[in-house]
Each structure stands twice: as C-alpha cells, then as structure tokens.
C-alpha cells in the first residue's frame, strides 16, 4: 500500500484506488512524510513540457517501443 504514494502524488490512480489510498494516508505517518517529500515533483516534471528537445530528440524519452 505504501508504494501507492507516488501514483497518488502524480494523480495516476483510478478513482477507486485513489479513495482507498486516501483512507490509508489518514493513518500512515510514513506515507504522509513521503507525500510531503514528493509533492513538488509533478511540477518539476511539468517543466519538461516547455522543453521541445526532451520530447522529440531523444528516443528513450519518447515512444521508443
């Protein structure tokens, strides 16, 4: 259950899993601490959307398979 914190922070859990994780979060100090640690990561990843080369020039960064 603890590993769901990253998916929760990134907003990529299904609705059902999201609710389940939030109930877990209410009682899990470890996930609360990791939520704080990871909360700014999505904003950093959003910066990639302003960098054309990141999406286009580098095969591993795009749909390579």
């Amino acid at each position: 259950m603890h590993e769901g914190v990253a998916a929760y922070v990134l907003g990529v859990l299904d609705e059902e899993e999201l609710e389940e994780f939030e109930r877990h979060l209410d009682t899990c100090a470890r996930c609360q601490a990791e939520l704080q640690d990871m909360a700014e990561i999505p904003s950093r990843l959003d910066e990639l959307k302003h960098l054309p080369s990141a999406a286009e020039d580098d095969p591993p960064m795009s749909m390579s398979r």
Binding site: R44, E47, L48, H50, L51, S53, A54, D58, M61
Partner: peptide, 17 residues
Amino acid sequence: DGSERALSAMVVADALR
C-alpha cells in the same frame, strides 16, 4: 522567464535520463 525555465527543464530532463 523562458531561459530560466528551459534551464530548469533541462535539469529535470537530465535527471530523468
């Protein structure tokens, strides 16, 4: 603020790589 943002984006791209 483009150059600063692009620089920051490159740091993130490097980290991802």
